[in-house]
């Protein structure tokens, strides 16, 4: 008797496992073959030597990392270091600006009538549905020499006559803020919508000043949304390619451009792969840090993207 039930159970287990295999295997294998293997190969390339045409060759070496740090045939040059610092700086500034704009916008949407809210959110999100190249091209049109915006900047003395506002670092920051604003508004809106107003009421009843009430009753409640938004903005901003390429020019280059250039034109695959590793490290540090902070705040589930 016991034997048959054991046999039955093991047969059911086999059927379950087969079911798992049939449903999950195709996708898991697909992602493994077409993403895990390629990324692993790219990681490996970083530790190879640069051969003719910039292609990777044996033997293994750490040469590419030395090159990435700026050591070349002609001694050390700070170019790559500047690019890295610029990427960090642009990420920091644009994320901060996005927060400053998105915070009041998300709050404002929650104060409006309920039937308007979906439309308002849609209106904020729709520009990001258009292709990134087109959006950036729109800014090129707006910031080009001879446009009203460039004329305004010229009359204030910000730029030389007959120059446009791009290519410049300012244009890259603007492009980043424009690109990522919706990614911050959505999670912040979700946080504001769930806001427990009883806490705010309590703060007011206890004669807290509006500023104090905000910092102690409102702000902590929106932190999970803020964190989720920061993950969605800062990580892709750090690896951005299109915006600095079109709006930044040679002096506005970011890490993404440095990496991409090594696979086109003046090819050097190992150097590019080393840059990609740097980008991955930054990504995972960012994700990890946000998860840690998110867990400590207790609102962990929103932070897991």
């Amino acid at each position: 008797m016991a034997e048959t039930s054991m046999a039955l159970r093991s047969r059911a287990l086999v059927a379950e496992s087969r079911h798992l295999l049939f449903t999950v295997a195709p996708g898991a294998i697909w992602i493994f073959v077409f993403l895990v293997l390629p990324s692993a190969y790219l990681m490996g390339v970083a530790f190879m030597t640069t051969g003719p045409y910039g292609l990777p060759e044996m033997p293994l070496s750490l040469d590419s990392f030395r090159r990435l740090a700026g050591f070349g045939f002609l001694g050390w040059s700070p170019g790559n270091l500047y690019t890295l610092l610029r990427s960090l700086w642009q990420t920091l500034v644009s994320t901060a600006l996005v927060v400053v704009i998105a915070y009041p916008i998300a709050y404002y949407i929650t104060t409006c009538r309920e039937k308007w809210r979906p439309i308002m959110l849609l209106v904020v999100v729709v520009p990001s549905w258009t292709n990134q190249v087109i959006r950036t091209f729109g800014w090129m049109n707006l910031l080009a020499p001879g446009t009203p915006l460039a004329g305004l900047a010229e009359s204030v003395g910000l730029i030389n006559p007959n120059m446009g506002l791009y290519p410049s670092n300012f244009a890259v920051t603007l492009g980043l803020v424009y690109n990522f604003l919706p990614f911050m508004v959505l999670p912040l809106y979700a946080a504001f919508e769930k806001l427990d107003t009883a806490q705010v009421q309590a703060a007011q009843d206890l004669y807290a000043s509006p500023v104090r009430a905000f910092w102690h009753a409102v702000f902590p409640q929106t932190l999970p949304g803020l964190l989720a938004g920061t993950v969605l903005v800062a990580i892709p901003a750090f690896g951005m390619y299109v915006i600095p390429e079109l709006l930044g020019g040679g002096k506005g280059m970011m890490l993404g451009n440095l990496v991409a250039n090594q696979f086109a034109g003046s090819a050097n695959w190992p150097l590019g792969a080393a840059g990609a590793i740097l980008m991955l490290i930054a990504t995972f540090i960012g994700l990890f840090a946000m998860r840690r902070v998110g867990k400590r705040l207790g609102g962990g589930e929103e932070v897991v993207i």
Partner: peptide, 24 residues
């Protein structure tokens, strides 16, 4: 492991994604 595998394409910076595929 499956969750990690599924989130990988989402969190990978798209430039790293594209270049991995291209070199491969």
């Amino acid at each position: 492991w499956l969750i990690v595998l599924i989130y990988l394409p989402i969190v990978l910076p798209d430039i790293v994604f594209g270049i991995s595929e291209m070199t491969f």
